[in-house]
């Protein structure tokens, strides 16, 4: 449980938000061309990093907008929040 600085609404309780998992997984441009392996990779396979991870979050009980976050999953510390379409501020 922690506070999240929504890029649109400001600081709010984490319970207002929904986590959307790993960020920057690009949707296949031509789904009909994909092999089963590639589908599995897109749909299911995740890095599930212990440490600094790039994630998608949705302010589901607020502005309902999606945004990205740089968060350390080993201690829940949030390093940065950035809007959809933007590049991650740190690697």
């Amino acid at each position: 449980m922690f506070l999240i600085n929504c890029p649109y609404c400001g600081e709010r309780d984490q319970s207002e938000f929904t986590a959307g998992g790993e960020a920057h997984i690009v949707r296949p441009k031509q789904p009909t061309e994909l092999s089963d392996d590639q589908w599995a990779e897109f749909l299911f396979m995740r890095k599930n990093i212990k440490g600094v991870q790039l994630e998608r979050w949705n302010h589901s009980h607020g502005c309902r907008k999606w945004f990205n976050m740089v968060r350390d999953t080993s201690n829940d510390r949030i390093h940065a929040v950035y809007k959809m379409g933007q590049k991650p501020p740190i690697e």
């Binding site: 990779e41 396979m45 990093i49 212990k50």
Partner: peptide, 18 residues
């Protein structure tokens, strides 16, 4: 819960979330 941590050592991706 740390299966992915081990898997990442050999570049295997697992369908897991911890």
């Amino acid at each position: 819960g740390h299966s992915s941590v081990i898997a990442n050592m050999v570049d295997i991706k697992l369908p897991l979330e911890s």
